[in-house]
Amino acid sequence: MTDIFQNRILLISIFSCFLAQFLKIFTGKEKKFDFKRIIISGGMPSSHSSFVTCLSMLVGFDRGFASTEFAMTAVFAIIVMYDASGVRRAVGKQAELLNQIVDDFFHGKFDQHEKLKELVGHTPKEVLLGALLGIFIGIIMS
């Protein structure tokens, strides 16, 4: 079990994910420092994209970019990034619309409902910058 802590590729990939999460506290729409953003999904940059592209880059450097292992991690990264900018983004837009419908319906008089989380997915720009961060971390840490 302690071998997992010796897995350099895994540890660097996790570092890339946490670095992207940390950067979110400086990149909110309000343009102010918001420490709560360190635990959210969605936002700039995409920590999911950073995580999987860093993993893919490190596997490519370690096993070769023509290896089966690199191909698997690259496909995995593409699926994760597509999901982050497509499906999860659509869920966030639906949550925003449903929250507006509830607000309009009750005219602010009924505050018993729990608002849906609107920041779920990523814009293509957020995914791209997360991916670039992961590639950068993968390159400098390899």
Rank of each mutant, 00 (worst) to 15 (best):
I4H: 09
F5M: 12
Q6N: 14
R8N: 15
I9Q: 11
L10G: 10
L11W: 11
I12M: 06
I12R: 05
I12V: 15
I14R: 04
I14A: 13
F15M: 11
F15V: 05
C17S: 03
F18M: 09
F18L: 15
A20Y: 00
Q21A: 10
Q21D: 06
F22E: 12
F22W: 14
F26E: 00
F26I: 07
F26A: 01
T27A: 15
T27V: 08
G28H: 02
G28K: 08
K31C: 03
D34L: 08
D34S: 10
F35Y: 04
I38Y: 08
I39C: 07
I39L: 11
G42M: 12
G43E: 00
P45E: 14
S47E: 03
S47M: 04
S50Q: 05
S50G: 13
S50F: 04
S50H: 06
F51C: 11
F51L: 14
T53Y: 14
T53G: 13
T53D: 09
C54T: 07
C54R: 02
C54Y: 01
S56N: 03
S56C: 13
S56A: 14
V59N: 05
V59Y: 03
V59H: 04
G60Y: 02
F61K: 11
F65C: 05
F65D: 01
A66F: 13
T68W: 05
F70H: 04
F70S: 14
F70C: 06
T73D: 00
V75D: 00
F76N: 05
I78W: 03
I79Q: 02
V80G: 01
V80W: 00
Y82W: 06
D83F: 05
D83I: 04
S85W: 09
G86M: 02
V87Y: 01
R88N: 07
R88C: 10
R89L: 13
A90I: 15
A90G: 12
K93Q: 13
K93E: 11
A95N: 11
L97T: 14
V102N: 14
D103C: 03
D103G: 00
D104L: 14
F106L: 07
H107Q: 12
G108C: 12
G108Y: 12
K109A: 08
K109R: 04
K109W: 01
F110W: 05
Q112L: 13
H113I: 04
E114M: 06
K115T: 06
K115C: 06
L116Q: 12
L116C: 13
L116G: 05
K117E: 11
K117Q: 04
V120Y: 00
G121V: 14
H122I: 06
T123F: 06
P124F: 04
K125A: 15
K125G: 11
E126D: 07
E126V: 04
V127P: 00
V127L: 04
L128G: 01
L128E: 02
L128C: 10
G130S: 09
A131D: 00
A131I: 10
L133H: 03
I135V: 15
S142C: 08
S142F: 11
